[in-house]
Nucleic acid binder design. Structure first.
Lengths: 342, 342
DNA sequence: CTGCGTAATGGTAGCGCTACCATTTTCGCC
DNA sequence: GGCGAAAATGGTAGCGCTACCATTACGCAG
């Protein structure tokens, strides 16, 4: 004898309830919701009415299980509070808000191991796409990405060897451009100040070094770095360190804008004239750079656009028309401002 | 005749594969992974070996479907780039990284309608808990939260009528404290400058107003607000507006630190002495406040801690011991700095 | 030696949905 | 008018897991 066991799931309406009410088969309801064009006008209306009346919402878990594919984008970034990644993530969210896709956001804390762990967890959900920051995945992570069975977009940087697709720009070129600008403006003892030396910062440093060497100005003592997470207060301290090492310092290319702002404040505090005595260049061009007094020269990067573009490429790939241009370089822009106007 | 149809899901090992390899029943594998203490030492080891060898990772979708409960925390915040919420979210992520729970993060863009939509989407997943920013949900949202069938924590604010639990502080008291500090420091024509006037900002304004009225100093022309999203550059513009309306302005309580920083920069640019001619107080106490020149007085709020506490309360509730203190006020702290040291 | 509580394990039947394969209906065209 | 193809709809059998009940093994009181 079959016991009509009471529903395990708290009694929410299921697709079968909708089907019954609309007088159609369950599969037709399923289709009406996912591929409306394959269901006749009339049934579609009947089904919609039943859905509305019952307040039916499809269970994404059951969907994922049955179709072996979850409507989820996995997104991995190294930091949630760093405005740069927050902007990328915002771009991703905005591009996906009108779609059925949900977002699974992971924070790697700049750790390769944590990235591997999260990739493992995300992969187990059979995501529709994966978006990861950076191009320096560990071999294990790379393998996980390659075997994920979904489109993968690496963002923030471009490089020669994408797992699948890439959207970003060259941090090396950015660093070089910033440094060349200082050199052209007449600065000579130009320091590099960098916190949280992740791979992208390393490449900006490499760009700095290339420019300095090309001009015959490079001196290792001009480089000040720390693995500590960057912050405005750290910028202040690091300028002091840099000046202690090289009192004749007359310019700084900062790893990022937080550091640059800290440097500016320390200059105010120590009555160092900007741009006269010291020139300052930041990186990323946060809103505050143009408002600062004096306004700060920076490399404008297109974070929000990177997020949007990554989603667009992933969606195209999901739809079956993988973009022929797999590596998209969104470039950057040197914003000349008062802090280097000597 | 039964066709041994090839596996739909890309051939990843399932719990049945593990069970076969370990020579036990599937249900025992399930138990070994979820409640190891209920399985004998020996089988546990055998099963673990099989799991490792096959590289088995449980499918969270199947789990959620079978148990009618997903291991997901739904988190709703109004903005991803606002550092304040980014910190809360970071606290949540850090507290949950060692647990099996995933996080579903939603961005409401300060919109009640969008919040309702996301709540609907999140609810359909049967999350383990919901964390939402603010206490001003629409009636529909509130109903959705009440019927979610899981612990709910409202964060950032405290109020009299929690859906379930609350962690935050009083924005009204914060606004009052900031304003009283300016009054005590001797400022009289104290303005309020606020962007993005969400409910929390409204309450900070109410606190400002209460303090000003108590001192007999209130004047509606001192209040300058805009619904535009706050930014440093907006702070600069708004100070200009405020000064145009009230040239005798001698202090400003800013909605938040971005605005305060913009105000400071504008003072520099217009050669207005801080704190002598104008005193400035911010809100939230971002890192840069203490580094700014002059350093800026602000109300320190405990964002990261709010995130951690919210998770701790939710986890306790899930475990069955709902905290007896359902409303947790984490308070705030007035950080006196140079910008109000007259 | 029986009876019975407890611990350890397993079988069965779904959870709510969709892939896959019918089946039915419609329609254009010779 | 008949036929094949295409469009519209439905049935069945899972997806991979766990809730809910057995069932077995074991220890101990009576």
């Amino acid at each position: 004898m079959i016991k009509p066991r009471s529903r395990r799931g708290g009694g929410r309406p299921t697709i079968a309830d909708v089907a019954r009410k609309a007088g159609v088969g369950a599969i037709t309801v399923s289709r009406a919701l996912r591929e409306p064009e394959r269901v006749s006008e009339e049934l579609r209306r009947q089904i919609q009415a039943a859905v509305d009346e019952l307040g039916y919402v499809p269970d994404p878990n059951a969907r994922a299980l049955a179709s072996a594919r979850a409507e989820v984008f996995g997104v991995l970034v190294p930091s949630l509070t760093n405005n740069v990644f927050a902007e990328v993530v915002r771009g991703i969210y905005d591009s996906l808000s009108a779609s059925p896709f949900r977002i699974q956001l992971g924070n790697t804390h700049y750790s390769g191991l944590e990235e591997e762990r999260l990739l493992q967890v995300f992969g187990s959900q059979r995501p529709a796409a994966l978006i990861v920051a950076g191009i320096d995945q560990t071999p294990t992570s790379r393998k996980l990405l390659e075997s994920a069975g979904c489109p993968v977009v690496q963002v923030m940087e471009t490089g020669p060897d994408p797992v699948d697709m890439m959207v970003g720009f060259s941090h090396l070129d950015g660093g070089r451009t910033a440094t060349e600008h200082l050199i052209e403006a007449g600065y000579r003892r130009i320091g590099f100040i960098g916190a949280r030396m992740d791979p992208r910062s390393q490449r900006r440093l490499a760009g700095y070094r290339a420019a300095m060497e090309a001009a015959g100005l490079f001196d290792p003592r001009l480089v000040t770095t720390t693995p500590v997470l960057s912050s405005v207060s750290l910028g202040r301290e690091m300028l002091r360190d840099a000046l202690a090492k090289v009192p004749t310092l007359d310019g700084v290319f900062c790893n990022n804008d937080d550091i640059a702002l800290g440097v500016l404040f320390e200059c105010h505090r120590a009555s160092i004239a900007v741009p006269k005595t010291i020139g300052i260049v930041g990186f990323n061009d946060l809103d505050m750079m143009q408002v600062a007094f004096p306004s700060i020269t920076s490399i404008r990067t297109h974070r929000y656009e990177i997020g949007r573009r990554a989603v667009a490429m992933a969606l195209a790939a999901i739809a079956g028309n993988r973009p022929e241009q797999r590596i998209v370089d969104l470039g950057f822009e040197l914003k000349r401002r008062e802090s280097t106007a000597r």
